[in-house]
Design a protein around this nucleic acid. Sequence first.
DNA 1: CAAGAATGTTGACAGCAGCAACATCTTAAT
DNA 2: ATTAAGATGTTGCTGCTGTCAACATTCTTG
Lengths: 212, 212
Amino acid sequence: MAGRKKRAATGRPYHHGHLREALIEAALAEIRRSGSTGLSLRAVAQRAGVSAAAPYRHFQDKEELLAALAEEGFTALASQMEEAGARAANARERLEILGQAYVSFARSHPEHFRILFGPELADLERHRAAQAAGERAFALLVDAVERCQEEGSVRRGEPRSLARAAWAMAHGLASLAVAGRLPDAEETVPRSLSLFAAGLGPLDRAGGRGEA
Amino acid sequence: MAGRKKRAATGRPYHHGHLREALIEAALAEIRRSGSTGLSLRAVAQRAGVSAAAPYRHFQDKEELLAALAEEGFTALASQMEEAGARAANARERLEILGQAYVSFARSHPEHFRILFGPELADLERHRAAQAAGERAFALLVDAVERCQEEGSVRRGEPRSLARAAWAMAHGLASLAVAGRLPDAEETVPRSLSLFAAGLGPLDRAGGRGEA
DNA sequence: CAAGAATGTTGACAGCAGCAACATCTTAAT
DNA sequence: ATTAAGATGTTGCTGCTGTCAACATTCTTG
């Protein structure tokens, strides 16, 4: 009569109840400890207080767990960007802030960020949920570009195409920072982003040169 | 008396002779086959026709083998960039071509490219040779920026700082492409690069806006 | 309340990185 | 030329890993 279930002896019931979420959280804790490369399904299971085979009731694969982490990550990234972007005075500033938030997320959660673009999830078609979450984040950029165009602070052109370029800029800074190749990120990131934003500007004068 | 050594029976001598180079080459072949993540030291050894423990006479670690691959990769990247850049008419065009060559290398050797910035080699300090090779590639960009400045096609400012931004732009495109996130790379890459180059231009008019 | 579906456990397998002990070949000092 | 030392390769082992099949327990639903 001690426990509310029969399992008073061991302390916890046979069924976990929220194992899937618990595994995701345990995995996040685990990559913080030992990196995204060294992530071991067994360690995750143990941290969640469950046997090594238990995760297979919720994930087909280790890869599918990683995909779940990616979905989580993309969602967190998007909401962090959204929150940061809300503090912008105009569309142009908002676009730059989104880029900064992108890099900022990568630098605060490097191991998590790595998973989003890691080799295990190279073909994202097979992980629709993660893919969708990623596209939701990308949509923020597209929207920001469109607003800039309305505002007149970004040249005309396919917003998706321009947003892809902006994404690549931010992603490059984020990747290099995470790879430890951007020692003075604090300076380099905003400088690079505003450099890029200058190129995005309308064709008043600059950019009309270049290709014959 | 058949073989030139005593080992006529097995076909090859006890000592390999060029095992280190052979292992590097075998590893490159192996990542082409099964990806950079699944790279197994044992498979590499087997492909080189040698026992599983033999590599440890030439590399302290699996990580050290990866570092050797990275050195190789950075060197190949640099020479591919250099070769492409030689075909440019002026400094400005050269800078853009260097960026295209960077992305092009990543797209032709995606698994090899991944290693250059992978998590295993996050602290590049421990692999001086690879680090030096990487810096040689980066120096190409710095030099290109300087020439552009002399030519008047790039704004004034610390060349290393501007080159870092350019590097990030190219690296972002390359990373996204390698991660399978840039489906229409053929179009996006040159477009993004020239967009960025526009922002790099002198301050005649564009870019002077932005930060108050 | 019984049957079946969910969800957990145990025990096993093959593949992995890395190590120690041993074997073979090369080189250099005598 | 001989031989001791060092370099390089092999075998066999340990502890870890992802994944599976067989079994146990619990939840759910007729």
